[in-house]
Design a protein around this nucleic acid. Structure first.
Lengths: 346, 346
DNA sequence: ACATTTCCTGGTAGCGGTTTCACGCGTCGC
DNA sequence: GCGACGCGTGAAACCGCTACCAGGAAATGT
């Protein structure tokens, strides 16, 4: 078996003690001469400290865990990107363990990370009601937490969230400026805070312009699913043209695309017959025609910030609560346009 | 600070030695009586062995690394799902480190996994030309490898690939049955084996039906990018209707959607004016209207199989080469339809 | 000149598991 | 009746690194 050089071998070649080698690597006291000599030996031997041994010695895992549901997978790339950005920048390079939760909610894996692997921190991507118990368990185990969630009521850890309300207001302005006055809204489940905040933002934005959202045009879906958009489209198609909303805002892109494609299947045009706005800016939003006007969450930044929190928590002792809010960016594409003015051809 | 129970404490309470406790946990010799007593103590104390210590002692990392590019992120969920399926099933629960490579190809992180963390295996998701050097380096370091790639020329490790050629033939049949005879193809970069194999499959399938692909209708793009689909669409729009392909196959979904949306922006209908087929079945394929007819890769299965390979490689000593081929599934949606019969209304 | 601090270094003791080794015991075979 | 063998157990070594401690040398202060 090939021989793996260890710190003792480096020490021997450099004619110093293991301790000194360790100090040279980690930046303790060492004379310039010794530093140079040890560095040279390290280079010659191609020595690299073994992370596992170091972590073991330091009593830590050297790992963060990332927890998310299947359905949130549209974001995973961005979040991972942000986390990695932060991790590779630090000399303390950590691995990211990532977990996609299955339909039936399985807390075992997360808890095993905490109990067995003793991860140094957990990043929860958009934990909801069902995740609460796991978050709670993690909290009790004194693991550092970063929670990407609109719900600041979580008892501990760093909470990172998007400013849904402002985004809603921005959409209101955008649609108002295009001339829309009859506007529809399709929310997610009633208990979804994202959905609530987005609705309130939209409503308050419209209110400032003296526009009212008719309750009959507002719907809250039982889940964030494409069929819910489809359902609203069917409803929309049955409305009298003089009463149907000229623009519809849906609480996520999936529903918005469901709405759009159902209308298109019935030969309605977007935005010719109705403007559509979504939330989240999933990859598909640029791939469809017309491109979906939507609001982008700074997922990458949130992932990075969450990671940074955990890193500082790793060094200092500060299981403090904190709350960071990220602005959302309205991305105007082709799915929104001026109000259809009946019987005016080009 | 809260006290963490270790194996010595368990041993003390159970009035046995550390060795015995270890044996009870890992299934060595132990009398039934002792087993029961130790198990009871473990339960009472809520003891869980610390993974890092165990891995350190065993001289392994307890981690696999997953390597993929940004652009392949559409698959990440499926691959992760497959890997996890395999990992949580085993009692040996391992973490997955996942890495998204940035535009400028950065091998450092991967190599640091190999050198510093000494991962027990690496899963490469669709490594291409540029990845070759990293794969090669990993091979030299004797790390177990699982490569999800169409390129079986990789010198080592388990190669997992989709049967692109059969998929191409299946598409040929599908389009032929719908009456298409003038068919276009947009490939990826010339050196992309996926693209080559897909093209060859399509061509051979059509040949069996005595249909020829006109060279003028075949294009190989410089990269898998949405704009390449757009470019082909512009080209298509300029063709004489009697010579333009009635169906176009594009080597991935992104390009296919680019093709579709550009046509739609010019008021052409799919599949009314032209049928479209993509490859990969990315999430967006179901979200657009019309839904994109495409071919699904069994990414989940490939991830799981790759993981299984690594797990067995971890136990036994078998750095063998192996090649697994997975069938692809043609998913017929609305973007393909019968050949447009000119001037025949319903 | 002596006390004090700062810098530098080596020896040693862990970190929490697994594994090897030696040994006692009972059972079996001849 | 005695060696051979399988089972069950404990003591101690070990994995590779860091941290703590003690002590010497050099620099500084009074």
């Amino acid at each position: 078996m090939a021989h793996r050089t260890d710190i003792a071998e480096v020490a021997k070649h450099a004619k110093v003690s293991k301790s000194t080698v360790s100090r040279v690597i980690n930046g303790g006291y060492a004379s310039a001469e010794v530093k140079a000599r040890v560095a040279k030996v390290i280079a010659k031997l191609g020595y690299t400290p073994w992370t596992t041994a170091r972590n073991f010695s330091l009593g830590r895992a050297g790992c963060f865990g990332l927890v998310m549901e299947d359905s949130q997978s549209e974001w995973i790339t961005q979040i991972l990107g942000g986390i990695e950005e932060e991790l590779t920048a630090k000399h303390i390079s950590l691995l990211v363990g990532s977990l996609v939760l299955r339909g039936t909610y399985d807390a075992t894996t997360v808890l095993s990370w905490v109990r067995e692997r003793r991860v140094d921190g957990l990043i929860f991507a958009r934990p909801g009601r069902r995740e609460r118990s796991v978050v709670e368990a993690a909290r009790k185990a004194k693991v550092a937490l970063a929670l990407i969630t609109p719900d600041e009521s979580f008892k501990s850890g760093a909470v990172l969230r998007s400013n849904n309300a402002d985004a809603g207001r921005e959409i209101a302005d955008h649609l108002y400026d295009l001339g829309h006055r009859r506007i529809g809204f399709v929310g997610g489940p009633q208990e979804s805070l994202d959905s609530q905040q987005r609705f309130e933002g939209l409503e308050s934005g419209l209110k400032m312009r003296k526009v009212k959202l008719l309750p009959s045009n507002v719907v809250f879906a039982s889940r964030y699913h494409i069929d819910e958009g489809k359902g609203y489209a069917e409803r929309w198609l049955k409305m009298a043209p003089s009463r149907a909303p000229t623009a519809v805002v849906l609480a996520n892109d999936i529903m918005a695309l469901g709405f759009m494609r159902t209308l298109q299947a019935q030969n309605m045009g977007v935005p010719k017959d109705v403007s559509v706005v979504g939330f989240d800016d999933i990859p598909a939003a640029t791939l469809v025609w017309p491109g979906l006007t939507t609001v982008r969450q700074q997922m990458r930044a949130m992932g990075a910030a969450g990671c940074r929190t955990l890193l500082t928590a790793l060094l200092e002792e500060q299981p403090e609560r904190s709350l960071l809010e990220f602005p959302m960016d309205l991305i105007v594409r082709q799915s929104t346009g001026p109000v259809p003015t009946r019987s005016v051809g080009p």
